[in-house]
Amino acid sequence: MTAPLSRSLLADQAVEQLRRRLHAGEWEIGTKMPGETTLAAELGIGRSTVREALRMLAGQGMVRSRQGSGVFVERLEPEADGWEAVVRTEAIAAVIEVRTAIEVEAARLAALRANDADIAAMRRALQVRADAVDTPDRGFVDADIEVHRAVIAAAHNPVLSELFETFVPRLADAMVEMIGLLGLRDRKTEPNADEHLALVDAIAAGDATEAVRISRAHLEGMAAGLR
């Protein structure tokens, strides 16, 4: 009896089929691709596998996900030898490493030192992030960074705050790039229904262990998405 194909293998095959169709000019640059349901039916695979294949194509620079609009064609061929995508991915991974060094410790200190004003600032930042869910990628990233800035401020370490502010421009560029590569905003989830709210709740509860765990898991999850 033949074993069923794994989802990763199916995704690889779907990528190859979609690349051939793109190369053949079935969809022109700038046009919107069919939705996941349509592609799943055409390719004979599940929607989750289609989604994975589209993320792989995004990593090759061939398509780009636009929040609330769909997936659009960027190129008809992968970026030369895939090296540009590799370099972009490595640059983002380096930024995440620095974020981990800064933000995990900031989460621990914030849980130990945050006052009522700090907690209120973090919750306001969460609301701003939720309100920005339908804005362009740069606007959403700026709102997301405000949550992390509020956590940094709650650590009450001026050197840590200064280091973070110096890092913010590089961080913002990397996060916008990461959204484009992985199609992160294509997921239909409730605003703040993720580690951000959980992190703020842990800090508000003064639970340093949980705050560290959540912060680290959030960043490690990002890093895993690049592999």
Rank of each mutant, 00 (worst) to 15 (best):
Q13S: 12
T209R: 15
G44N: 05
L109D: 02
T209D: 15
M1F: 11
A107I: 09
L160Y: 04
P136C: 08
E103Q: 14
G225T: 01
G25N: 06
E77F: 08
A198S: 12
T135D: 04
D207S: 10
R99W: 01
E84F: 13
S69Y: 05
M122H: 01
E79V: 07
R170I: 08
S8C: 01
V212L: 07
I119R: 09
V168C: 09
L43Y: 05
V141W: 04
A204F: 11
F167V: 10
A3R: 15
P78M: 10
A91H: 05
R170H: 12
L18M: 15
T49P: 04
D201S: 13
R213K: 15
P169M: 11
D137M: 01
R108E: 15
R99S: 05
E190M: 05
A24K: 14
R64V: 14
R19Y: 02
L171A: 02
S161R: 14
D118C: 06
R213Y: 12
I203Q: 06
L54C: 09
E210Q: 15
D194S: 13
D134H: 13
R227L: 10
D118R: 00
L197Y: 07
E90T: 01
S48V: 12
L18S: 05
A120D: 12
S48C: 06
E165A: 14
I152W: 02
V104L: 11
G68A: 02
Q13T: 10
